Lab assay of single mutants.
Amino acid sequence: MAAGGDHGSPDSYRSPLASRYASPEMCFVFSDRYKFRTWRQLWLWLAEAEQTLGLPITDEQIQEMKSNLENIDFKMAAEEEKRLRHDVMAHVHTFGHCCPKAAGIIHLGATSCYVGDNTDLIILRNALDLLLPKLARVISRLADFAKERASLPTLGFTHFQPAQLTTVGKRCCLWIQDLCMDLQNLKRVRDDLRFRGVKGTTGTQASFLQLFEGDDHKVEQLDKMVTEKAGFKRAFIITGQTYTRKVDIEVLSVLASLGASVHKICTDIRLLANLKEMEEPFEKQQIGSSAMPYKRNPMRSERCCSLARHLMTLVMDPLQTASVQWFERTLDDSANRRICLAEAFLTADTILNTLQNISEGLVVYPKVIERRIRQELPFMATENIIMAMVKAGGSRQDCHEKIRVLSQQAASVVKQEGGDNDLIERIQVDAYFSPIHSQLDHLLDPSSFTGRASQQVQRFLEEEVYPLLKPYESVMKVKAELCL
């Protein structure tokens, strides 16, 4: 049975990233139509530049190519590739079939990587351009969430054990800070992308030097003109047959890092959902379990974690691919890159769409948070109580021993009897502590235990987050809708 299948058929496997999760716009960027249309555009740009620099290419040939950029006979191309065992030459023939007058000058002087690699770089750039505003929107939604809850005390956790208090907004800023680093890295790697350009079979530009009869300047002009037509500021000066596969490492490393950030955020949300302090959106008709109707599973956060793990592992592909590119190139890269580049971007696209949807509907339960604080705060307040007693004339050592005994009794009630923490009640009825009984409410005010959390939130948002989001103001209103 021949390899390949009808990918629109229910009898043929289709990647869930495309069929179930990723956005239509990201799927289109990695589609065959987008790819092969870009090949034709690159052939047109090459012909236009070659004509401008004096090669015998007519206006009629150029116009014929322009008129057929979208006229792609995919069936013919597939048949040609089956016959020739070469995808680029299959599309040269297919393009030439609908451009008979231009057929002889299509791909003039070029090698397969002229269309293959340059198209990949265009796709990487455009895919990054799709991700950047999506990530900015996630940051914006979380920034709104953090600002609104900047002063809401909550129990902090280290080692997932109760620690000092923080605020809900401050905790959210930990998430935002990681995503801001990801946004900066995505922008950097996007701006650092260079075009492969017009380089020939081993990167020496020998074929173009021959076409222009040894004119170095025209060869350099050709490279520059096509690079500018493709919208790049610069091209690699040095290439082998391909652009260095280190570029793929750079791009997928940034995406993998984004995956790590999203995994951490969504894990926190899942843990908070278990504590009943916070939940992701839950639709009115949504079913959490087929057997347990009360369940409210954090399905979206779980999906993000599941896909983020996949995204983090994909960076190993370009690392290994770059390491086995012998001399000017081997074909070890080809099949692998067809999979890992598309999957990385479709996965990143999915987790950003999902995280935006989550961040637009996060639900906080202040009463649950308050109750958990009441359970733990008495123990945390013991040092403040000791200091207040010393100020009232008591002995630190005597007070410490009193607190120690009462704390152990209260802990026994919590752990052995399943009761509430009654340390404060014990202190309130103990005559030894009568000098500070009137101060206990103040000493137990949760806001006095959150330090500068709310001020940190305000400063972080104003100095770091809002300036970073400013270039994306025009796209901030787009909502994230999930079908599944």
Results as ranks from 00 to 15, higher is better:
residue 245 R to P: 01
residue 259 G to K: 00
residue 229 K to P: 01
residue 482 L to P: 14
residue 288 G to Q: 05
residue 451 G to P: 06
residue 318 P to K: 03
residue 419 G to M: 13
residue 253 S to D: 04
residue 284 K to E: 05
residue 401 E to D: 08
residue 272 L to W: 12
residue 122 I to L: 09
residue 148 E to M: 11
residue 359 S to T: 00
residue 381 A to I: 05
residue 22 A to G: 11
residue 67 S to W: 12
residue 311 L to N: 02
residue 328 E to P: 00
residue 245 R to V: 01
residue 458 Q to S: 14
residue 75 K to R: 00
residue 362 L to G: 04
residue 64 E to W: 08
residue 94 T to C: 05
residue 276 K to A: 06
residue 323 S to T: 07
residue 470 K to S: 15
residue 58 T to Q: 08
residue 329 R to T: 00
residue 274 N to M: 10
residue 288 G to K: 01
residue 117 D to I: 00
residue 127 A to M: 01
residue 454 S to D: 14
residue 165 L to T: 02
residue 144 D to E: 11
residue 82 K to V: 11
residue 151 S to C: 03
residue 107 H to F: 04
residue 213 E to D: 05
residue 43 W to M: 03
residue 42 L to D: 00
residue 127 A to R: 01
residue 154 T to Q: 11
residue 276 K to R: 09
residue 11 D to L: 06
residue 144 D to W: 11
residue 463 E to Y: 10
residue 382 T to R: 02
residue 72 I to W: 10
residue 193 L to M: 15
residue 225 M to A: 08
residue 253 S to M: 15
residue 15 S to A: 15
residue 425 E to N: 09
residue 7 H to Y: 13
residue 190 R to H: 09
residue 69 L to R: 01
residue 59 D to W: 04
residue 333 D to K: 00
residue 449 F to G: 04
residue 350 T to Q: 14
residue 435 P to T: 09
residue 275 L to W: 12
residue 259 G to W: 01
residue 239 T to C: 10
residue 230 A to D: 05
residue 248 D to M: 01
residue 175 W to V: 05
residue 269 I to Q: 04
residue 100 P to S: 15
residue 198 V to W: 05
residue 164 Q to W: 06
residue 342 A to D: 14
residue 442 H to D: 15
residue 285 Q to L: 05
residue 419 G to A: 06
residue 200 G to H: 02
residue 422 D to G: 11
residue 405 V to N: 15
residue 343 E to C: 08
residue 325 Q to D: 03
residue 120 D to P: 00
residue 388 A to G: 09
residue 434 S to P: 08
residue 483 C to L: 12
residue 272 L to S: 10
residue 216 D to A: 12
residue 117 D to Y: 03
residue 295 K to C: 00
residue 186 L to C: 13
residue 172 C to K: 03
residue 85 R to P: 00
residue 9 S to L: 13
residue 347 T to D: 12
residue 73 D to A: 13
residue 193 L to V: 07
residue 75 K to H: 01
residue 130 L to H: 01
residue 399 C to W: 06
residue 228 E to S: 09
residue 310 H to P: 03
residue 317 D to N: 08
residue 457 V to C: 09
residue 177 Q to F: 12
residue 220 E to N: 14
residue 311 L to S: 02
residue 171 R to K: 08
residue 203 G to I: 01
residue 303 R to T: 00
residue 432 Y to A: 13
residue 140 S to R: 13
residue 289 S to M: 04
residue 84 L to P: 04
residue 381 A to M: 07
residue 22 A to Q: 07
residue 294 Y to W: 06
residue 422 D to A: 01
residue 428 Q to S: 08
residue 386 I to T: 10
residue 179 L to E: 01
residue 396 R to L: 07
residue 429 V to R: 09
residue 471 P to K: 14
residue 255 L to G: 08
residue 451 G to Q: 04
residue 143 A to V: 04
residue 250 E to I: 15
residue 31 S to C: 08
residue 375 Q to T: 01
residue 452 R to E: 09
residue 70 E to W: 05
residue 383 E to G: 02
residue 87 D to A: 03
residue 270 R to S: 03
residue 414 V to W: 11
residue 31 S to Y: 01
residue 337 R to E: 00
residue 317 D to A: 09
residue 93 H to M: 07
residue 187 K to W: 08
residue 386 I to R: 03
residue 230 A to N: 05
residue 416 Q to P: 09
residue 14 R to T: 13
residue 154 T to E: 07
residue 143 A to L: 12
residue 111 T to I: 00
residue 73 D to F: 11
residue 150 A to P: 04
residue 334 S to E: 01
residue 121 L to M: 06
residue 8 G to W: 12
